[in-house]
Design a protein around this nucleic acid. Sequence first.
RNA 1: GCGGCUGUAGUAUAGUCUGGUUAGUACUUGGGCCUUCCAAGCCUACAGCCCGGGUUCAAAUCCCGGCAGCCGCACCA
Length: 571
Amino acid sequence: MNHDKMINISTKRGFLWPSFEIYLGVSGFTDYGPLGAILKNNIMQLWRKQYIAGEGFYEIESPTVTPEEVLKASGHVDNFTDPMTQCEGCKDVYRADHVIEEVTDLEVEGMTNAELDKIVKKHKVNCPNCRDKLSEIWNYNLMFKTNIGAKGNKTGYMRPETAQGIFIQFKRLSRFFKNKLPFGVVQLGKAYRNEISPRQGVIRLREFTQAEAEIFVDPKDKSHPMFNSIADEKLVLNSQATQIEEKDPITITAKEALDKGIVANEVLIYQIYLANKFLNEIGIPKEALRFRQHLPNEMAHYAIDCWDVEVDTDRYGWVEIIGIVDRGEYDLKSHSKYSNKELDLFISYDSPKTVSKTIIKPNMAKFGPSFKQNAPKVKGFLESVTDDNIEAIKLSIKEKGKYISNIDGEKFEILEEYLKFEDIEEEVSGEKITPHVIEPSFGIDRILYSVLLHSFHVSDSENDKDYFKLVNSIAPIQIGVFPLMNKEELNEIAIKITSNLRNSGFRVDYDTSGTIGKRYARSAEIGVPIAITVDYDTLEDNTVTIRNRDTEKQERVKLNDLNEIVEKYFN
RNA sequence: GCGGCUGUAGUAUAGUCUGGUUAGUACUUGGGCCUUCCAAGCCUACAGCCCGGGUUCAAAUCCCGGCAGCCGCACCA
């Protein structure tokens, strides 16, 4: 693990480049060079393989420009805007609302900046650090704002996460999945956050790529059909308890973690397991990973449980690369409220339930004369009261002979003779529920960085070289084809091999420049797993050598068998 | 957003303090020679003073501003 050397080579060889460089660059943005772009796509394709092919989830793609309403409902418009203030003396920057609440004990949430400014003046709120004067308050919004349409009167934002695009399609999605839980929907794409001061290269970007899955589950059933198959898998967990007690993370099986209540439910553990599996497969070793549970105070208020996957880095310490959250019903409820649409699901019971309950039957002969024009209103009220309230009404009438209802501020006296209680048995075939959402959210850029960092082999001797020991499944270039010398008769065969392999779908680099040794070294550096060399023997007996990047061993094979051997090697 | 340090070809650097030849070197990259198997050798070519302004006869060098990188603070629903 060596950040500096790794970044040096990855920049030099076309993995990661600074964006807008000839115009001096802008921090918080990165370009993926020719190899970086392939690598990123390969990682995303493997992700799709695991979650779409493996788990049966479906992918959707929604716009990155998002109208304000959506992000209002999600909470981003309000919670992503921080009122900031700066001390004119020591230049420290603070959250204005935090400073004010601390000093004045006032509840200032939802106030405008002008109102906050007034409070600052009135209560003489000064810098908590050096007591100097505070500047006028300004808003810092972490979302990129834009206007939609020529008139520019519709506000939009670049989405700060891909998840919302899934939540707001819930009605169509649940129909697509035939109204059956659980189902999973994924989205891979760009998201945007206008960070105040991004300074950690590709770790903290203003425009980044997420791969998120939203798994909709029955709140009463968070079991997972495959849980038994992973019950004995060991996980390294840094739970709330181990963090609070400042102990080392514990190694524990999935089953134990569930039984001891360390992880909230099976689906969540299964997702932790899957994340771990994915990272191992793309070349991040187990030892470099750990799972950290959010502490109660850092968890979003609606979250039921939340785990970060963290990767070890030499430059930035433990870095969060994946978040796995049980978001409960928060998102669907919130969008339902703001959009006024029913974002729920009717779940049929295995067999219809017979429910015995008490209903109220109004005696309309008495109702009309007593309540006159208000009769329908009172009737409606009585029909809509919940089971608990029926008991209260029943009790009140039994004890006092009447019940005084309060309907929209108007009081109505309901006497015993106005109604009848009837015990009935009702057949209920199911119920409407708001699904809970389990969300694994992957930061693709950070994962790519981790892959590069942990694949990077730092030379340990004179003969050794620094190179990317990328696993076969994601190496941007899979095969180098090199004529031993830059000679027409060798090149001819090498070109033919190259085009054959390319036609079979392999990413091949054909290279004649420099000495063969130099070409091996160069291709190893960018992680090409194997090199095929055409030499003078090839002209005699139709054989070539296949050289393994890591062992440096060469094997001579027949040209006729080449395709088959290579296929086997990569699949 | 604040403070400190830094910015010379693709990479690593010399030169900057003390202004003054055509900005030097190594590796890399392109072309060529060579029966050359983890960056060999030889010939050859390309390529640089972060950007803008100021001071000066003259600025890579001094001054101011900006941008970017690193470190610390703040921020990171």
